[in-house]
Design a protein around this nucleic acid. Structure first.
Lengths: 346, 346
DNA sequence: CCGCTTCGTCGAAACGCTTCGACGAAGTTC
DNA sequence: GAACTTCGTCGAAGCGTTTCGACGAAGCGG
């Protein structure tokens, strides 16, 4: 494996000159630059990442920390990742994903203190997230995807849940639905302070109230069975419901199954809107789901861009941004069968 | 940030002694060891990963390289990852996931030559996979999840597709199905030399022939629409089919939708078996899918264990292992409505 | 009690890079 | 044309570890 010394010797320049060619931190004449580049090519030289990291005190590695629970990564999360990886590559950084869950706090502390990560993007942030504290204490630059409750000192990118819910409700209300049930994540998830669940809950209440409608929310476990149970609960609380809004990508399949099981058709009897969903998942259902499509890769890209700007730029600016999901109408929403009770028609 | 020098000074020993305490490469008396450990604790010392990597020429970082395409990571892949991460942690390595696709071959070459990865686990291996060549040339120890066509010099862990298909077919045949259609990945995927698609194709042919049945395979795009088209094609080729075996996790939802659309019920009219599927996904469908459950985290764990054994141990042994999927019977399979034409009965 | 290992520790030399100060050679400015 | 600035390059000093050779102090056989 060739080193810088080898390159320098072959190009008949000093080691530091080779380094300057590589990093561009000092001007180098075109002639020497060419000599050096030729030597590097001839030796198939690759700088040693460890040595570079040690000397420069920056690894050019960015971490994307994502808790990997059983559910797996949906297409939505995958889009984050690919967006982030692309942006990192453009900025000249490597992106490594680390599956550190909430339990591995010590693991995280070690990772952070070992100076192996120049900066970190944290996914699936809780309202009160210890990982944030750990990383801040370790002095690692940080961008969140999601938000803690106190965002005053932090950079983040998140989905604009308020706007997203408002649009979803507006769509359904515009079609003439009056009785709309919101199926959220589980009660446990809500209690644990999961931001999206809490924010959508509040946004839903606000949006419904704004339309003069009564908000009904059901918490559902993240599973098909949870979805079925949720639908049963929904009918118990609001028998005359004509539309379901759901954020729970897994539960929604249970909801659809249960609807079919009850002999109800989508969208004729009940309309369904899925929130923060990728087109791929929306297309899996029959009929394909009308959904609020998440900004996906943009979220990852923006997070990385904010982070690298922070690392390379001098100012330590905060970046705080919300991106809305966009409504994509597919086959699962329609006007309710009867605005007024049937008997009143004709 | 405390360094080893600080620890050495505080403990009143030499730097090398501190290092020996840390690495255990030379005997240290209990007394000094305690002094050193106390000093480390007091200073909250964390070794600098870069310096360590430079001096020892090993980073203690393992890469898990997975192409991230649009489909996202299913629960199956996620299980790989978590299994691998856990095993790496146990062996004292960090695991980083790198989303290098087929296009990023140069990226990969750079990563490999920069000596930042002690070893690599490669996921989603093609029969002819350039990434293998690149990594071997770079001299990076390698374990595959999947197999290339020539496995003579490589370590790998893979699903035993042969056994898996055989068991799935046996299950259906045992129920009395004679006309079974296999829905594989797309023709393009097959043509690109995707091992699982090819191996299951051959295994299916063999298994069906073994039962004295005629194998019918349909290639389906990885989408719900692809599944619908595949089912239409299946009925065209084998109108009297009573069972579908599918490996395409995305297409299978289209298949189910289309079945319902045609007024056919699962499992009464048509039985469905999904291959290499996680329980989570199987439960999404209504009825829940009988499936061949992938060995999931075991695959990841075994791959990492093989890799670390190779790195830490002296011998450079190859590890080659196949794991079968296990049949989990849920609601989507049953005996065909009529074994013999009804008229022939009684 | 003398020469031999073994044990525990130290000092110094890497590891392969970045970065700082220095210093000729040109190029400017009055 | 003297006094300054760039410009382009060099040598050397780190960066924080590991690792190697060395060396006293014990421990041991004869």
């Amino acid at each position: 494996m060739a080193t810088m010394h080898d390159v320098a010797r072959l190009a008949q320049v000093s080691v530091s000159t080779v380094s300057y060619v590589l990093t561009g931190t000092r001007p180098i004449s075109q002639a020497t630059r060419n000599k050096v580049l030729a030597a590097m090519a001839q030796l198939d030289y690759q700088p040693n990442a460890m040595a570079r990291g040690l000397a420069s005190r920056r690894s050019r590695i960015l971490g994307l920390l994502m808790p990997m629970d059983e559910r797996g990564l949906g297409a939505t999360e995958t889009a984050f990742v690919t967006g982030a990886a692309a942006a990192a590559s453009v900025a000249g950084y490597h992106l490594v994903l680390s599956p550190v869950g909430g339990g591995d706090l010590d693991d995280l502390r070690r990772l952070a203190s070992q100076r192996m990560l120049d900066g970190v993007v944290l996914m699936e942030v809780q309202l009160a997230d210890e990982r944030v504290t750990v990383l801040q204490e370790a002095g690692v630059p940080l961008v969140l995807i999601g938000r803690t409750d106190d965002t005053s000192t932090l950079s983040y990118v998140d989905i604009d849940f308020d706007q997203t819910v408002r649009e979803a409700v507006a769509h359904l209300a515009g079609l003439g639905h009056r009785r709309i049930v919101y199926v959220n994540h589980s009660a446990a998830t809500l209690a644990s302070g999961y931001g999206p669940a809490l924010r959508t809950r509040d946004a839903f209440t606000a949006a419904m109230t704004g339309h003069g409608l009564e908000p009904v929310m059901i918490a559902a476990e993240d599973s098909a069975a949870g979805g079925r149970a949720a639908l049963a609960a929904a009918f118990a609380q609001a028998p005359e419901l004509t539309a379901v809004l759901a954020m729970n990508e897994t539960a929604i399949f249970g909801i659809l199954g249960e609807l079919t099981g009850r002999g109800l058709s989508v969208p004729d009897d009940v309309s369904v809107v899925s929130m923060v969903t990728s087109p791929q998942v929306a297309e899996l259902a029959t009929p394909a789901l009308t959904a609020m499509t998440s900004p996906g890769s943009a979220l990852g890209r923006i997070a990385i861009e904010a982070l690298t700007r922070h690392l390379d730029g001098p100012a330590d600016l905060r970046h705080q941004q919300l991106l809305p999901c966009t409504l994509e109408i597919r086959g699962s929403t329609a006007a309710p069968r009867s605005r007024q009770p049937m008997v009143a028609d004709k």
